[in-house]
């Protein structure tokens, strides 16, 4: 599981639905969720989570995307399986893992050392833990 340490910068609510914005090392991130996690408020230090299967990768990105979370990353390592491919990425000093199909990896011609963009939907990013509660 990918873990990102971030600070809560904004909370918008509509009944029990919320959009929470974060600062992750200067990069804005956001997620949608139902009731707020216990103890979460503006300024809270949180650990965000994202499953490797929920992390998409873009190369030479152009146009506009609905993905709320877009992070510049560098490919550290590619491990090819028969069908899938595990890609280890470096983002702002931390390692993220992404599972994509091997076919996609080959279609994109991904190679180690290459710069790419990591994409995570707001519905798929989550709060694993609220620290200092």
């Amino acid at each position: 599981m990918n873990r990102l340490s971030a600070i809560v910068t904004r909370i918008e609510g509509e009944q029990n639905l919320h959009i929470i914005s974060f600062d992750f090392q200067g990069v804005p991130l956001s997620m949608m969720g139902l009731d707020l996690p216990f103890g979460l408020e503006i300024g809270s230090h949180v650990i965000l989570g994202a499953k490797p299967s929920h992390i998409a990768i873009a190369k030479e990105l152009q146009g506009v995307l609905s993905y709320s979370n877009q992070l510049e990353a560098k490919i550290l390592r590619i491990e090819n399986g028969t069908l899938l491919c595990s890609i280890l990425l470096h983002v702002k000093g931390i390692a993220l893992q992404s599972f994509i199909t091997r076919r996609s990896s080959e279609r994109m011609g991904l190679v180690e050392g290459e710069n790419v963009t990591v994409l995570i939907k707001a519905s798929e990013l989550f709060v694993l833990e609220v620290l200092d509660v």
Partner: peptide, 23 residues
């Protein structure tokens, strides 16, 4: 039962872990 922002949460017993391809 919640875990952070996870609202769909259950307790269970881990029976096995199987390696499949790279996952």
């Amino acid at each position: 039962k919640t875990q952070g922002s996870q609202k769909f949460s259950f307790e269970g017993e881990l029976l096995d872990i199987i390696k499949v391809d790279v996952i």
